[in-house]
Lab assay of single mutants.
Amino acid sequence: MAAGGDHGSPDSYRSPLASRYASPEMCFVFSDRYKFRTWRQLWLWLAEAEQTLGLPITDEQIQEMKSNLENIDFKMAAEEEKRLRHDVMAHVHTFGHCCPKAAGIIHLGATSCYVGDNTDLIILRNALDLLLPKLARVISRLADFAKERASLPTLGFTHFQPAQLTTVGKRCCLWIQDLCMDLQNLKRVRDDLRFRGVKGTTGTQASFLQLFEGDDHKVEQLDKMVTEKAGFKRAFIITGQTYTRKVDIEVLSVLASLGASVHKICTDIRLLANLKEMEEPFEKQQIGSSAMPYKRNPMRSERCCSLARHLMTLVMDPLQTASVQWFERTLDDSANRRICLAEAFLTADTILNTLQNISEGLVVYPKVIERRIRQELPFMATENIIMAMVKAGGSRQDCHEKIRVLSQQAASVVKQEGGDNDLIERIQVDAYFSPIHSQLDHLLDPSSFTGRASQQVQRFLEEEVYPLLKPYESVMKVKAELCL
């Protein structure tokens, strides 16, 4: 049975990233139509530049190519590739079939990587351009969430054990800070992308030097003109047959890092959902379990974690691919890159769409948070109580021993009897502590235990987050809708 299948058929496997999760716009960027249309555009740009620099290419040939950029006979191309065992030459023939007058000058002087690699770089750039505003929107939604809850005390956790208090907004800023680093890295790697350009079979530009009869300047002009037509500021000066596969490492490393950030955020949300302090959106008709109707599973956060793990592992592909590119190139890269580049971007696209949807509907339960604080705060307040007693004339050592005994009794009630923490009640009825009984409410005010959390939130948002989001103001209103 021949390899390949009808990918629109229910009898043929289709990647869930495309069929179930990723956005239509990201799927289109990695589609065959987008790819092969870009090949034709690159052939047109090459012909236009070659004509401008004096090669015998007519206006009629150029116009014929322009008129057929979208006229792609995919069936013919597939048949040609089956016959020739070469995808680029299959599309040269297919393009030439609908451009008979231009057929002889299509791909003039070029090698397969002229269309293959340059198209990949265009796709990487455009895919990054799709991700950047999506990530900015996630940051914006979380920034709104953090600002609104900047002063809401909550129990902090280290080692997932109760620690000092923080605020809900401050905790959210930990998430935002990681995503801001990801946004900066995505922008950097996007701006650092260079075009492969017009380089020939081993990167020496020998074929173009021959076409222009040894004119170095025209060869350099050709490279520059096509690079500018493709919208790049610069091209690699040095290439082998391909652009260095280190570029793929750079791009997928940034995406993998984004995956790590999203995994951490969504894990926190899942843990908070278990504590009943916070939940992701839950639709009115949504079913959490087929057997347990009360369940409210954090399905979206779980999906993000599941896909983020996949995204983090994909960076190993370009690392290994770059390491086995012998001399000017081997074909070890080809099949692998067809999979890992598309999957990385479709996965990143999915987790950003999902995280935006989550961040637009996060639900906080202040009463649950308050109750958990009441359970733990008495123990945390013991040092403040000791200091207040010393100020009232008591002995630190005597007070410490009193607190120690009462704390152990209260802990026994919590752990052995399943009761509430009654340390404060014990202190309130103990005559030894009568000098500070009137101060206990103040000493137990949760806001006095959150330090500068709310001020940190305000400063972080104003100095770091809002300036970073400013270039994306025009796209901030787009909502994230999930079908599944």
Rank of each mutant, 00 (worst) to 15 (best):
C266M: 13
D420V: 00
Y466W: 15
V475D: 10
D441K: 11
K276D: 05
Y472L: 13
F208T: 06
E70Q: 05
A260L: 02
H437A: 14
R426G: 08
L174Q: 13
F460V: 10
V254F: 06
V368C: 04
I339Q: 12
F157T: 04
Q51E: 03
I424C: 14
A230L: 03
H437M: 07
M299T: 08
R171P: 03
N68I: 02
N274I: 01
S23N: 10
E220V: 09
G54M: 03
L443R: 05
Q161V: 03
V251C: 04
K402W: 05
E462C: 14
V315M: 15
T154G: 03
T313Y: 09
F345Y: 08
S448K: 11
N68K: 03
F460R: 04
I386C: 10
A256W: 00
V315F: 12
V138L: 15
T166K: 04
Q397C: 06
S15L: 10
I106R: 01
T158W: 03
L222M: 07
R171G: 02
M299Y: 10
P471L: 14
L135D: 02
R371S: 05
L55H: 07
A480E: 11
F236G: 02
L132D: 11
A230E: 00
I373R: 01
S412F: 14
S359D: 12
E79Y: 15
K199I: 00
G393C: 06
D87E: 14
A411T: 09
M476W: 15
C113K: 06
I105N: 15
A2Y: 15
A388Y: 05
L222K: 03
D178Q: 09
D87M: 04
A103L: 13
E481N: 14
T330L: 08
G203E: 00
K75N: 04
L209T: 08
I269H: 03
K224M: 08
L152S: 08
H159Y: 00
T382W: 00
E280Y: 03
A102N: 09
E280F: 03
A2S: 13
F30L: 10
L46K: 02
M299W: 02
F212N: 05
G109I: 00
E383S: 04
C340Q: 00
V254W: 07
T158D: 00
R303F: 00
R338Q: 05
R149G: 09
E370K: 02
L209M: 06
N185Y: 14
V115I: 10
T202S: 14
M387K: 02
S306H: 00
Q456I: 08
T119D: 03
R33E: 07
Y466T: 15
M312Q: 10
S289V: 01
Q210I: 15
T330P: 01
F160Q: 00
K479D: 08
Y466S: 08
M312N: 00
G288F: 00
A308R: 00
V88A: 14
K402R: 14
Y472N: 15
V478H: 10
Q63P: 03
Q375C: 09
L346E: 10
D192I: 12
F212E: 04
Q408N: 15
G104M: 12
I123K: 07
N274E: 07
S12T: 07
N336D: 07
E417I: 07
H107N: 02
I237F: 07
L128T: 13
S395A: 11
P133Q: 11
V324Y: 02
A235R: 07
L484E: 13
V138E: 15
L155W: 03
L352A: 07
Q439C: 15
Q397N: 15
L484M: 14
